[in-house]
Every structure is written in structure tokens, then in C-alpha cells.
Design a protein around this nucleic acid. Sequence first.
DNA 1: GATGAATGAGGATTCATTCAT
DNA 2: GATGAATGAATCCTCATTCAT
Lengths: 176, 176, 176, 176
Amino acid sequence: MREKILESALRLYTSKPPQSISMEEIAKNAGVSKGTIFYYFKNKNNLESELLSYSIEKYFSWIYGEPRDCKTLEKIVRKALKIAKDNPRLTMFWYYVFEKEIFSGNTQFARQLYDEMLEFLTLLLEDMGIDKPEQTAIILMAMLDGISIYSLFIPELDVDEIGNLILEFVKGRCKR
Amino acid sequence: MREKILESALRLYTSKPPQSISMEEIAKNAGVSKGTIFYYFKNKNNLESELLSYSIEKYFSWIYGEPRDCKTLEKIVRKALKIAKDNPRLTMFWYYVFEKEIFSGNTQFARQLYDEMLEFLTLLLEDMGIDKPEQTAIILMAMLDGISIYSLFIPELDVDEIGNLILEFVKGRCKR
Amino acid sequence: MREKILESALRLYTSKPPQSISMEEIAKNAGVSKGTIFYYFKNKNNLESELLSYSIEKYFSWIYGEPRDCKTLEKIVRKALKIAKDNPRLTMFWYYVFEKEIFSGNTQFARQLYDEMLEFLTLLLEDMGIDKPEQTAIILMAMLDGISIYSLFIPELDVDEIGNLILEFVKGRCKR
Amino acid sequence: MREKILESALRLYTSKPPQSISMEEIAKNAGVSKGTIFYYFKNKNNLESELLSYSIEKYFSWIYGEPRDCKTLEKIVRKALKIAKDNPRLTMFWYYVFEKEIFSGNTQFARQLYDEMLEFLTLLLEDMGIDKPEQTAIILMAMLDGISIYSLFIPELDVDEIGNLILEFVKGRCKR
DNA sequence: GATGAATGAGGATTCATTCAT
DNA sequence: GATGAATGAATCCTCATTCAT
């Protein structure tokens, strides 16, 4: 049931502005009563946080099973940009929850997701022989996040070309 | 009076989560009545948008007067990171308004600010002899925006070091 | 609960000027919370419309069960005038809602009530052998509505006498 | 200036729902400031009442100069129905002000207009040899007012035909 | 006479959340 | 486990009116 609610909520949150979604609507959409939502999720904030984890997992968990090589790096960059391009509403939802959490002082949440990804990328870049792997990883992630945001309001953004430059940047930091 | 309201609202918005600020509070803070706020600003959304423009102007308008050279580039990067680091609430406010506008379908707003900055940076990079100046400018901006967001939840982020890497990246794209 | 709200709202609306009644007051009067009112009625307009139907039903639904003869006609005329005389606040409420709906372009509402009554009266007058029954019915209704309004500001209006003349008018249109 | 305001307000009030008109709009429409409106009219209510008198005068004052005969009666009936038909917004405005005044307990206003017209019609009907001239006049006025209201939501109403019946009714009350 | 900036009371509406069933 | 009726705090916004200039 929990999963059913999450799945239907995800569909809802990737179809319209998150601020405009009420518990009423989530319940109706999931085909259950409002009470049931509150039975499974402490409150709206909790539901949205759980939904963020759920959706991040859904779209990015594959990464952690990949080998730590150049191919994977490329895959990550391409995929991240593709998701942003193809699924703006999803990107919006992610930023919506992040913002809410961070602005209200709860940084742990974002922190954890950031740390996980940073650790993986740092190791990957290290294995690739990149100089200052952690700093490079941070910048890489920042670039991807920044571009994801831009793609929300610049429809003509050529993410393939941008992807190339980003990869060039990383590879250019290879120690000889 | 308009300015007085904006100035006091800016103080308010850089002191607490934007979602928690009511028109009531803005009025009280400015020492005027609610009606006065609505006399100068059509509605809350309008006030917040105007406040965004006002604050962006305040912090970034100096850029457009600078010469288009390497020094300016460095100044921009340093300053942008410094603002984010020193003034997280301001950064939050900016993202709050952007998000609101973009998510509700009004992309023109973000678009205009983006275009202005992009144009300036592209010319600057061009003058510096950078390859693919526009694409590079986009990535540069994305990096700065991404890092600004990260600094909101990673207090130990060393923005000076990151600034160095970013500058290296740009300069590394110099055509020989 | 819906009924309870309507019943208490009707009492309120027949006790003071409709323009002066707030949702707050309606809720307090019904002994429920404001939220409950909005749970059962989409908005204030909807509540007032429903209340109009509810009260019209309450006072006039008996008509449609009556035989279509001269006696009924007399009963209708007498009753309509008596309601206006005895219950000016109710009459006011009716005109208040009608006006609101019509002025805002929603004529369907008034139209339906008008059509129902017109159909019944037309058939009744037809059965009574009245010439031009539909037109006569329209005029009859107009007279009753007009007099109802007058009784709001002419307390000394002798509605019995007026009723006599109205009935004379109708009967005078009998085909020989 | 007073006249200028009234004239422009009348244009406004006959172009949109009266409830939707603010002092701001009236002022803008008249090309003066809000303060000026309040200089010439004590408050909004006063402005609307004065506007009612002004417009009634404009459309009906001719009556009192007419001879008291059958021709005039016909002219009055035809004209009253024609105004309602051609100028629904004006009719709406009249009922809007009447309603406001009466509902808030101020019946004198409506009363005076009613009395003036009643006196004239009573004398006219008397001169025509009509039985119970005052009662007949009241009913005649009620009919015209009722039909005026109906014409607001029944566009296909044939006011000419109705006018004929109304005149028949009055003339039928001639003492032989 | 004329202005328009400033007021602030007042009202509708939303919606997360609770809880008896 | 599941429901949905009931709550009430929170908030935006409107607009007639005032008054210093």
C-alpha cells in the first residue's frame, strides 16, 4: 500500500507544480482516503521526503553497481542530463523538496544524498587518475545540477554538446 | 516608500525561510500597513519578483561595467562564490523565487537574467580567446550556481579552492 | 449536517441583510467550524444558491401537487402575497441571490425556477379556459413578484385587496 | 464636475455588474482622482443613490409633463418595457441600488420614487374612468417592474405582446 | 478645489491534520 | 487497517475612506 501511494504520488508530482498538490489530491489519485495517507506517512513533509528518496533510488541506484571507470563516468553524465531534459517535472520535484528541507534548516537530508554520490564519484575519478579527485567530483556534480536547472527554462539547451564539454573538463584533469 | 519596503523586505527575506514570511510580517517589518504594501505591489508574487530584481541588481549590476578581461572573470567567480558563502539566506531567496516562477510556468523571468549574464560572459570569454565561448559560459554559470546551492548545506565547502579549479577549467579552454 | 447548516443559515438570512452575513457568522450560527461549511459547500456563492433552492422548495413545492383548477390559482396568489407580507427578509434573500446570479451572467438559475412555475401556471390557466394562457401566466407571475417587492417598502399595502384585483384580471381573461 | 462624474459613472454602471465597480474605477473612468469623488459625494452609497436619481430623472422625467390620457398610458407602458429590453444593465443598476437601500432599512428612497409615479398614474387612470384607480396603478407598476426583471433572464420575452395584454388589463377596468 | 498616498478592518478560502467509528 | 467528517489556524487580498499637501 505504501508503495502504491508512493508510485501514484510520484505520477502526480511529475505532472504538475508541487506547490499545487494537496493531500486531498494525493489521496484521490491513489484511490485511498486521506486518513490512509496519514496512516502510512507521518505528515505531508514526510511523504514528500520519502517520495524524493524513492524516486532518486529509482533513477540513480544503478550507478552504485557500475564499475569505476571512464565509461561509467560518461554514462552518468549523459543520463543525468537526459533525465533533466526528458523529465523536467521530476527535476522540479527534486529541487522543490531539497529547497524545502534545506531552507527549513534540515540539511542532513541533502547532505546524505550528496555524500553518497560524492564518495562514489571521487573514487571513480581517483581510479581514472584524475588530479584532485574530490574537488573535481564536486565541480562535476555542481555542473550537472546547474545544467539540470537551466534546462528547466532553456528548452533549446543542447545537452549533448554540453555533456561533451563537461567530459572534456574532467578528462582534461588527468595526471600524466 | 517603494524602496523602503523593498529594503526592509530584503532584510526580512535574508533572515528566515521565505515560505514562512507573510504579507502581514512584511508590512509590520517595514513599519507600514498591509494596505500600503498592496498599494505598491500588486500581490505577494509581484513583491517577491521585484525584490529579486532589486537584490540581483544590488549585488551583480557592477559586473556590466567591468572590462571584458581575465581579471573581471576572476572577480566574478570569486564574488559569486563569496556571496553564496556569506549570504546563504540571500541565495535561498533567489532560488525560492526562481523556483516559484519556473514551476508555475513563467520561465521568461529566469530567462532574462540568464540571457543577460550569458551574453556578457560569452563576450568576455570570446575576448579572452576561449574556445566555444558560449557553451563555456553556460557551464561556468552552471558551476557557480551548483556550487552556490551546495554551499547551503555543506558549510565546510572550500570555495576558494573550488574557485581556483573553476578558473583553471575556463583558462584551460584557451585556444593556442 | 448539510441540512443543519442550511436550516441555521436560513434562519440567519431571514433575520438580517444578506450583504452583512459572513461565512464566519454562518458557521458560528450553525455551531460548526468555518471549515465544515466549506466542506459541504464549495464557496459562499454555492451555499447561497443552495439555500435559495432549499427555501424555495420549502415554501413552494406544495404547488406542484395541487390540482389545476381555480381554487389552486387562488391559493397560489394568496400564499405568494402572504409570504411576501409576513416574511420580508425571506423575500429579500430571494431577490438578493437572484440578482447576484443574474448580474454575474448566470441566468440559468433564475430561468429554471421561472420555467417550472410558468409551465405549471400555463397548464392551470389553460385548463381554466383562459385566453393566451402562457402570456397571462407570465403577467400573473410578474404582478406577484412586483407586488412582493413593493411590500418590502410599503408596509401599508393591502395585499388582500390587491389579490382580489389580480384574480379578477386572470378570471376576466376567460374565454366565453 | 459633479455632472461629469455622474455621467461617466452611469456609463460605467451600465456596462458591467454593479458589485464589481470600485471607487478607484469610477475615478479613473471619470478622469479625476479618488479624492475628488469623495469631495462631491459623501461616500459610495451616496454616489450610487444620486446616480439612481440622476438616471431615473433622465429616463422618466418626461412622464410628468404628459397629458393624463390613454395615449400617455400607452406610451409609458411601451417605453418602460422598451428600456428594460434595450438596457438590461441600467435595469440591473436600478434594482441593485433599490435592493441595497431597502435591505439596509432605508425604504424612504424607494418610497418616494414609488409615490411620485403612483400619484401620477392614479390621476391618469382616474381621468380615464378606471375603477379603483390607485389599486390598478399599483398593479400596473408591479407588472411593469416584474416584466422588467424577467426580461433580464428571458431574452426571448415578447414585450410588445405583453404590453398589449397589460394595456388590455387596464382598459378592461374602465367603468361603463 | 483636487490629489493620491496610506490605511486597516474585514472576509473568503485553503488545507494539513485529527480522531471517532 | 481504513475512513472521511470536522477542524481552525493561517493568509492573501479588497476597497471604501481619510487627510496632509
